[in-house]
């Protein structure tokens, strides 16, 4: 069986996988990182989004072997070792942007990437379009959009540019 070596949340792992094994299966079943969820089988729902080398990726869309040498961050790797939450996690709590919690890890990972890649700011419309790849059945997205907007100034350490608001 082929092996893949990857770094997940700062820790290096070498695991034996089948050629067809998906990255999400390695995370959940081999590494026990069950925070990354599986919500569909057609790469439509985004519950499995993680960061691979700094980009948000649906981990059901990537073979584990494609992650050779990659740096992967999952929801479990976001908080600081002392438990301090990432600003996006904190804003999700503050704005009640989660209900059942199932889409939340993928939603948070997508939202972090969206905000990080838009230093010029984000309008409400852009946030909604930017989260288009993540399904949530509980919240109606209203509070998720608010949370993402509220996390932007915290992540960029400056107010959201007025033009974007």
């Amino acid at each position: 069986m082929p092996q893949v070596t990857l770094t997940v949340n700062g820790k290096r792992h070498t695991v034996a996988v089948e050629g067809r094994t998906l990255l999400v299966e390695v995370l959940r079943e081999k590494l026990g990182l069950t925070g990354t969820h599986i919500g569909c089988d057609t790469s439509q729902c985004g519950a499995c989004v993680v960061h691979v080398n700094g980009d948000s990726v649906k981990s059901c869309t990537m073979l584990a072997l494609q992650a050779e040498g990659a740096e992967v961050t999952t929801i479990e790797g976001l908080a600081k070792p002392d438990g301090t939450l990432h600003p996006m996690q904190e804003m999700f709590r503050e704005h009640h942007a989660l209900q059942c919690g199932y889409c939340t890890p993928g939603m948070v990972m997508s939202a972090i990437d969206l905000v990080a890649k838009h230093p010029e700011g984000l309008t409400e419309r852009e946030i909604r379009e930017g989260l288009d790849g993540n399904l949530c059945r509980c919240t109606g997205y209203h509070n998720i959009v608010k949370a993402v907007a509220a996390a932007w100034p915290l992540m960029h350490a400056k107010p959201m540019p007025a033009a974007a608001e």
Partner: peptide, 13 residues
């Protein structure tokens, strides 16, 4: 604020 959010946000559901 919700008591259950801590575990869900940390991926510990």
């Amino acid at each position: 604020k919700r008591k259950e959010d801590g575990r869900f946000l940390a991926g510990r559901g």
